[in-house]
Amino acid sequence: LKKVVALYDYMPMNANDLQLRKGDEYFILEESNLPWWRARDKNGQEGYIPSNYVTEAE
């Protein structure tokens, strides 16, 4: 899975979204639905995130 790091905080707009915290790492599960990607956080929560809020992890 592709790993990304959040560049900004993101508060979910609806139940399908995943909250982002700046500096945290996330795994990308699906990239087909631009600009929204399906992601999983370190706690196993899954949801959609804005792809322009993250960058690929080193």
Results as ranks from 00 to 15, higher is better:
Trp36Leu: 11
Tyr8Thr: 06
Gly23Gln: 03
Val4Gln: 02
Asn16Ser: 12
Trp37Gln: 06
Glu31Ile: 11
Leu7Pro: 01
Trp36Gly: 05
Ala15Cys: 12
Tyr8Gly: 04
Tyr26Gln: 00
Ala15Glu: 12
Asn33Met: 11
Thr55His: 10
Ile28Ser: 01
Gly47Thr: 01
Val54Cys: 04
Tyr53Ser: 06
Ile49Val: 08
Leu7Ala: 04
Tyr10Cys: 04
Leu34Lys: 13
Leu1Ser: 06
Thr55Cys: 12
Glu25Arg: 06
Ser32Pro: 08
Trp36Lys: 12
Glu58Pro: 14
Ala57Gln: 11
Ile28Trp: 01
Arg40Leu: 08
Lys2Tyr: 09
Leu29Trp: 05
Gly44Asp: 05
Met13Asn: 11
Val4Ser: 02
Ala39Cys: 07
Leu18Met: 07
Arg40Pro: 01
Gly23Glu: 03
Met11Ala: 13
Asn43Ser: 12
Gln45Met: 13
Phe27Ile: 12
Lys42Gly: 08
Val54His: 01
Phe27Ser: 06
Asp9Ile: 02
Met11Val: 13
Lys3Glu: 03
Ile28Arg: 02
Glu56Ser: 13
Leu29Cys: 05
Ser51Asp: 03
Glu25Asn: 08
Lys42Tyr: 07
Asp17Met: 15
Lys2Cys: 06
Glu46Leu: 05
Pro50Glu: 03
Asn14Ile: 05
Asp41Trp: 01
Pro12Phe: 02
Val5Glu: 04
Trp36Cys: 11
Ser51Pro: 06
Asp9Glu: 05
Asp9Pro: 04
Val4Ala: 04
Arg21Met: 08
Ala57Gly: 10
Met11His: 12
Pro50Tyr: 10
Arg21Ala: 07
Asn43Tyr: 14
Trp37Tyr: 11
Arg40Thr: 05
Ala39Pro: 00
Ala15Met: 11
Leu1Tyr: 12
Asn14Leu: 07
Leu18Trp: 02
Glu56Lys: 11
Ser32Tyr: 08
Leu7Lys: 06
Ser51His: 11
Glu58Phe: 14
Tyr53Gly: 05
Leu29Pro: 02
Ser32Thr: 12
Gln45Leu: 12
Arg21Gly: 03
Tyr48Pro: 02
Leu29Asp: 02
Ala15His: 12
Leu29Gly: 02
Val54Arg: 01
Asp24Tyr: 09
Lys42Phe: 08
Asn16Trp: 14
Ala15Lys: 13
Ala57Glu: 08
Asn14Gln: 10
Gln19Glu: 13
Ile28Thr: 02
Gly23Phe: 04
Gly23Pro: 00
Leu29Glu: 03
Lys3Pro: 04
Val5Phe: 10
Met13His: 11
Gly23Val: 01
Gly23Ala: 03
Tyr10His: 05
Arg40Gln: 07
Trp36Asp: 04
Met13Asp: 09
Gly47Trp: 02
Gly47Tyr: 02
Asp41Tyr: 02
Tyr53Asn: 03
Phe27Asn: 04
Gly47Gln: 00
Pro35Met: 15
Arg40Cys: 08
Lys2Asp: 02
Met11Asn: 11
Gly44Val: 01
Asn16Gln: 13
Gln19Leu: 09
Lys22Gln: 10
Pro50Ser: 05
Glu30Gln: 09
Lys3Asn: 04
Tyr10Ser: 03
Gly44Ala: 04
Leu18Pro: 01
Asp9Cys: 05
Arg21Cys: 11
Ser32Cys: 12
Glu56Cys: 11
Gln19Cys: 10
Tyr26Met: 02
Glu58Gln: 13
Leu34Trp: 15
Glu58Asp: 13
Ile28Cys: 03
Leu1Lys: 06
Leu1Trp: 14
Pro35His: 15
Trp37Met: 09
Glu31Trp: 13
Asp9Tyr: 03
Lys22Gly: 04
Met13Thr: 13
Trp36Ala: 06
Gln45Val: 13
Glu31Ser: 12
Lys22Asp: 02
Gly44His: 05
Arg40Phe: 06
Leu1Pro: 08
Val54Met: 04
Gly44Glu: 04
Gln19Pro: 13
Gly44Ile: 01
Trp37Cys: 07
Trp37Asp: 02
Val4Gly: 02
Asn16Ala: 11
Gln19Met: 12
Asn43Cys: 13
Lys3Gly: 03
Lys2Thr: 06
Ala57Tyr: 12
Arg21Asn: 10
Ala57Trp: 13
Glu30Ala: 08
Ala15Arg: 11
Asn33Thr: 14
Thr55Phe: 10
Leu18Gln: 00
